[in-house]
Amino acid sequence: MSRFKIANIIAYGFVTLFSIYVLMPILVMVLTTFKSKREIFLEPLGIPSQFGISSFEKALSVGLGSFMMNSFIVSFFAVFLIVTISGMAAYVLSRIDFKINKFVYLLIVAGFAIPPAAVLVPLYTMVSNLNLLNSLFGVIMPLTAFGIPFTVILFYAFFLDFPKEVEEAATIDGCTKLQIFFRIIVPLSGPVIASAAIFQTVWIWNEFLLALIMLTSDDFKTLPIGLLKLRGEWTSDWGAIMAGLTIAVIPVLIVFLIFQKYFVRSLAGLGK
């Protein structure tokens, strides 16, 4: 009995300590936002004596609102394109016996493996030659491409397990594959569409490298690139930097807490 208790204490102790390690930096971020400059330097471990908002004003002055808007536009369009295009392709791969399907699937897996850093220079040259540097369209297109392979794989696994009877009935009624896809498959694919959309939104909202090389003008910067400007502008004004981070991070955390079940589910499915 006592041995059982000790094991129990160790188990709770371990997850509690790890949770503190996870929460502490977020707490530091929020508390630093409200501290005065003096408090930041003299009492790194203390809590703020008053809740000043001057740091927020400084942070917003670098244009966080517009960075966030850009991130929103990029995420919305890229995720919409990724989910639509990937769902369509995965359906074909899972249902129709083209001779080239195996080859296409291998291409998709290869596309999943290739990181943006491995094609950085030609991709930059291409976007630059198309005159799409410093445009949201110029980032949305390659980001969409890089999101497709993983999403195709996700949908493919889902469609393989999908009951075939309904489709067969529809085929007998004379529907084409195109009609079946949009009228039958899509309305019944809610969960996997949600998983794919959540996963891609997190990825694109946070994507850094491609946005870094393609968006150099402040008007088009997305949030991750914009956050660096915060550091450039307020070099050692930690209050302002942390205020900017708080503005950027807290909305994402709230969305996460509301939908956490779906987040966890979409990621957990990866191992299967």
């Binding site: 949770s19 997190v202 949030l223 550091r231 942390m242 990621l267």
Partner: peptide, 19 residues
């Protein structure tokens, strides 16, 4: 709690740990 940092962008994570 333990899953939370996954949704924060790596740039924001880096800046938080920088302080």
């Amino acid at each position: 709690i333990i899953f939370t940092p996954m949704v924060i962008s790596s740039v924001a994570v880096s800046l938080i740990w920088l302080i």
